[in-house]
């Protein structure tokens, strides 16, 4: 994952943003992003979940609630509701897909680079916050649930 992230980072030198015409690698609204935005996966409220966690980004108004059901230390089901920009919505749509049937241990190790790799687009510092909102909700949710003695 790291390598992929670094490659994207190199294609997007923050100090030279806009120096030349946009290359294909710099394009962020790729078809799959727009697809996930318009037809998000797992966008529904889950009434009988193990935990839910809301994260809000006051800067952009991105607002995500993640619902997770845990069975035998595996993610049984994941869903979300909320509103926000295409990046935040695509990211949570992809993330809920990705974590299903994964072990809790595996999911807890997920980092920013995994999310960026999953999205597959170069992200500026500003947009990174949108992309990472869902992971933040997920990890915080797990942490609080575990601390709460399950």
């Amino acid at each position: 994952m790291i390598n992929k992230y670094q490659k994207q980072k190199a294609a997007f030198d923050q100090n030279q943003i806009g120096d030349g015409p946009l290359t294909e690698e710099q394009e962020i609204y790729r078809e799959n992003i727009i697809d996930h935005y318009k037809n998000p996966h797992n966008k529904r409220k889950m009434d009988h979940c193990t935990f839910s966690r809301r994260e809000f980004n006051p800067l952009c108004g991105d607002d995500v609630i993640m619902y997770v059901t845990i069975r035998n230390n595996f993610i049984g089901d994941a869903a979300f509701t909320g509103t926000g920009c295409a990046i935040s919505q695509a990211s949570v749509s992809l993330l809920t897909d990705q974590i299903k049937n994964k072990s809790l241990e595996e999911v807890k190790k997920m980092t920013r680079d995994d999310v960026v790799g999953m999205l597959g687009i170069p992200l500026s510092t500003v947009r990174l916050r949108c992309a990472l909102l869902s992971l933040k909700a997920l990890l915080k949710g797990i942490e609080l649930w575990e601390r709460g003695g399950k």
């Binding site: 609204y29 006051p58 800067l59 952009c60 926000g84 920009c85 949108c130």
Partner: peptide, 28 residues
């Protein structure tokens, strides 16, 4: 279209605009 997405698309067209609450959250 979310204001940030619009801002990003406009940016790539060379157009600088602002998206967000513009320091007026209660108004929003």
């Amino acid at each position: 279209i979310h204001p940030h997405d619009l801002g990003e698309v406009l940016d790539k067209e060379g157009i600088a605009v602002r998206g967000g609450h513009h320091c007026a959250m209660p108004l929003m």
